[in-house]
Design a binder for these strands. Structure first.
Lengths: 136, 136
DNA sequence: ATAAATGTTAAAGTTAACTTTAAGTCAAGG
DNA sequence: CCTTGACTTAAAGTTAACTTTAACATTTAT
């Protein structure tokens, strides 16, 4: 079954203009058009867009997603490089999770601090768990 | 001990211009100046900047950090609201971690897929773990 | 004393990822 | 036939979080 741009957008939780933007940026090279120029999204594109969302939501820039797509189109020769792209992205996801985890610790400490002590000057506000990675 | 803007920036892993920007946006209302107008960062500001980095790195916008700072300056009356701000931010951190975790699963699946099968068309590329949250 | 380094400001520039706008085309229903 | 709604494009606008620039003041080192 095929989808109009609006249907595809709804299915993916995106907007039609975002899909047009991705297309313009070269992220959807397999997309078909009707004779009159209207985009038709097949399951293939829907699923590829699902991966795009996955990579995008975890911080991969559009241009790098495009690079990955380009590698996919080039066939098996690019297998190693594609895997490297994903491995690199994996470490970036893990780094992000670490940052979030540290921040969560700090925020949790502060929330507990409020519960137990109940005195809230800026001097208390700025104390507590240390979340700065010193660059010295 | 006090710090110049460059020393403070280094200690926090930021740039001097970023610190000036934060100051301009009202994130550093306690910051002192010399008679000639040069900023001097005390431990107080360094630690508050540590919290700013923590909140910023976990996705809180500058304007909301400023709001939080404003509440801190207003004294104990704003205790409940400050706690609510942190609780809300906590759920946003947890949401982000969930998104990253889903993406990590997908990426891991793909990496394994490469290892085991070794055939890499776009049709394989777009299959695999599902990472789209349908909006239907 | 003077040159280099560091500080200041306001204002303009940057970047990513879209969104909005304007002007036009196309398909379906009454 | 003609209106309505969905589609198209190119180009300009948006937003956040800075950075860069330019012009100038001050501090430090020689």
């Amino acid at each position: 079954m095929n989808y109009s741009i609006q249907q595809a957008a709804q299915k993916l939780g995106l907007t039609p203009s975002a899909l047009r933007y991705y297309d313009k940026e070269g992220l959807l090279p397999t997309l078909q058009r009707t004779d009159s120029g209207i985009r038709t999204f097949r399951e293939t594109e829907i699923q590829w867009l699902g991966l795009i969302c996955c990579l995008k939501n975890s911080g991969m820039p559009i241009q790098e997603i495009k690079h990955f797509m380009t590698l996919c189109l080039q066939g098996e020769d690019t297998c190693e490089e594609r895997k490297e792209v994903l491995e690199k992205h994996k470490t970036e996801i893990l780094d992000q999770m670490k940052v979030l985890s540290n921040s969560l610790n700090t925020v949790n400490y502060k929330i507990e601090h409020y519960k137990e002590i109940g005195i809230f000057h800026i001097d208390q506000e700025i104390g507590g768990a240390d979340n700065v990675q010193s660059a010295s």
